[in-house]
Design a protein around this nucleic acid. Structure first.
Length: 403
RNA sequence: GUGGGAUUAGCUCAGUUGGUUAGAGCACUGGUUUGUGGUGCCGGGGGUCGCGGGUUCGAAUCCCGUAUCCCACCCCA
């Protein structure tokens, strides 16, 4: 038997119900916030992700589905959504057009990782990107949009917040951190040794407890922010508080993609195991110019749909539509005809086999129909149909022409 | 990529120190001789016990390899 590849799942039946339920709900919310749908290719030039997500990140460094295509192009399946949207934004010259552009997307992402619960090789994200707004109100709005979606899904969460600084304060901070790391270099773990040169900020996120104890004395970015960043971060906290969004400051929150600056946030759930991040995002004011566009402020987020699906509280499904069946085989033709006619306006399922009433009621119940309609000996003779409302438990016999 | 656990019917799982035709519940399906469901009764189909080797008179059971899932690390959505 041929099986799906490791970490790549089919979505069907109840999973699909949950999946579309979420997409529809999130789409509605994004549209209410004034965002428009964008779809970008699954396959992109590898350089796009190297330049945006960053070669030092694990995503690009070791998790990409990368290959040379028949035209000798170095390509890869997208590991995340932002880079493609920014590429499209620049390619359409919207950076030069100016103004505000707001997009949302959803689709498959690919990362060659060891699968785990909530971590797949092909997974789905719902994401949002906003271009052209440098106001911190937009950062707050992004966070509130995520909170809005999660609330509508009945999902509890913790919101972690940090500021990563900008080109004025981050480089200085990075230098002071490296200096500190060098002072304790002998004691830190192998991973941190590597991080020191590739991306020193990441040491803060190290899970090693000994490293963490060392970094407690390390300079904190939050204390090194420049005036503008400091002001924005303070304002962000005020806006969220004013709008009833609770948060906690996590000075070690470092997003795994290199393009973030200033606002960084992560929504986590304590109920889905160790892969606990259900949404994450932040500001990335430099990314558009990294991808050859005119400098454009931008902010966005992405949500992991598979992880959310574990948590979504689905509304109770209501009975809907009709079930039509025959009790004698010579009434089946009539049943099929009635079904076809009724389908012009209603959801209708029918049975092609004659069965007794009990079986039909059972079957109607199973497909969650609101009405069970049956044609038996009496109905056939009288030109009527027996209709039972499975919810109200009421029944009536009506003329076929009135059905 | 590293370490640990699991894999038996469509699903959830039993299977006693290796010993005849591998079981249950649910699901599916048929009947229940007068036309009332989601909660009656009786029956039926469905498994080369993940896959490949090995040990043995004999393997679902023991050993080795391999695949997948789960857990932790790593990382992230």
């Amino acid at each position: 038997m041929i099986k799906s590849l490791r970490g790549m799942n089919d979505i069907l039946s109840e999973d699909y119900e949950r999946f579309t339920y979420f997409i529809n709900l999130a789409t509605k919310v994004a549209q209410n916030y004034g965002f428009h749908f964008i779809e970008t290719p699954l396959l992109e030039e590898t350089a796009l992700f190297k330049r945006s997500v960053g070669e030092s990140s694990d995503i690009v460094g070791k998790e990409m589905y990368q290959f040379i295509d028949k035209g000798e192009n170095d390509v890869c399946l997208r590991p995340e959504g932002t880079a493609g949207v920014v590429r499209a934004f620049v390619q359409k010259k919207l950076d030069k057009a100016g103004g505000i552009h707001r997009y949302f997307y959803h689709g498959s992402m690919f990362r060659y990782e060891r699968p785990q619960k909530g971590r797949l090789r092909q997974f789905h994200q719902f994401g949002v990107e906003s271009f052209g707004v440098d106001s911190v109100y937009e950062d707050a709005t992004m966070i509130m949009m995520v909170a809005d979606i999660l609330k509508k899904c009945g999902i509890g969460y913790r919101l972690q917040l940090n500021s990563l600084g900008d080109q004025n304060c981050m480089p200085q901070y990075r230098d002071s951190l490296v200096t500190y790391i060098e002072s304790v270099e002998d004691e830190i773990c192998e991973d941190c040794q590597r991080r020191k040169t590739t991306n020193p900020i990441r040491v803060l996120d190290c899970k090693n407890t000994h490293c963490q104890s060392l970094y407690e004395k390390a300079p904190k970015l939050i204390n090194s922010l420049c005036g503008a960043c400091e002001e924005d971060f303070t304002k962000l906290k005020t806006i969220l508080t004013d709008n009833g969004v609770e948060f906690e400051i996590d000075t070690n929150l470092v997003r795994g993609l290199d393009y973030y600056s200033k606002t960084a946030f992560e929504f986590v759930s304590d109920n889905i195991g160790s892969q606990s991040a259900i949404a994450g995002g932040g500001r990335y004011d430099r990314l558009v110019e990294f991808l050859d566009g005119r400098p454009t402020p931008a902010v966005g987020f992405a949500m992991g749909i598979e992880r959310l699906m574990e948590l979504i509280v689905m509304p109770k499904v209501k009975r809907e539509g009709y079930y039509i069946g025959a009790m004698d085989s010579d009434a089946v033709d009539l049943v099929v005809k009635l079904t076809q006619d009724k389908r012009a306006t209603e959801k209708v399922v029918c049975d092609y086999k004659a069965k007794n009433l009990k079986k039909h009621l059972n079957a109607a119940d199973k497909v969650n129909a609101k009405y069970c309609c049956v044609i038996g000996e009496n109905e056939k003779k009288d030109g009527t149909i027996w209709v039972k409302d499975l919810e109200a438990k009421s029944e009536e016999v009506i003329l076929l022409k009135d059905f």
